[in-house]
Amino acid sequence: MNHPKPLYSSRLVFGFGVIFLFLVLGQWVSRFFHLPISGSVIGMVLLAVTLGCRILPISLVEEASQLLLQHLSLFFVPAGVGLLSYWAMLKNNWIPITLAILLGTIITLLGTAGIHLVLLRTKWNRKSNNVESTQ
C-alpha cells in the first residue's frame, strides 16, 4: 500500500465520518430486512457500490480506509485473547473441535483454491483469462 502524501488531512477526518455513516447504513439495512448478514459487511458492499456509481469520490475515503486496514490484524487481538474465557466450554470436546478446525481449515483453503484453479484453466469466459501469479 502506498502512502497518501498529507497524512493528517481533513479528508482523513471526513473519510472516518463516511465510513461510520456506511456502518450505520449497513446496520439499518440488516435490521430492516432482518438479514443474517452483519451491518459491517453490508456497509462494505454499500460503500463499494456507492464508489462504483461515482456518487462518492474515492479520494474522500481512501486515506481513512488505508489507516484502518493497515493494522487490521491488531484489532483482532482482543478477540483472540478472549479464547481464554472460552476454555471451560472447549474443554469437554476439545479433540474433535481442534480436529475440525485444523483439518477443516486446511481442506477449505485447498478446496476453494483448487476449484478456482480448475475454473481458471477452463476457458469459460474467454476474455478475462489473463494469468497473473503472486511473486
Partner: peptide
Amino acid sequence: TFLLAPSVVALGVPLY
C-alpha cells in the same frame, strides 16, 4: 474491538 466494524466497512475501498 470497536474499530473492527468500521474496518470491515473500509474493505469496500479495495473492493471498489
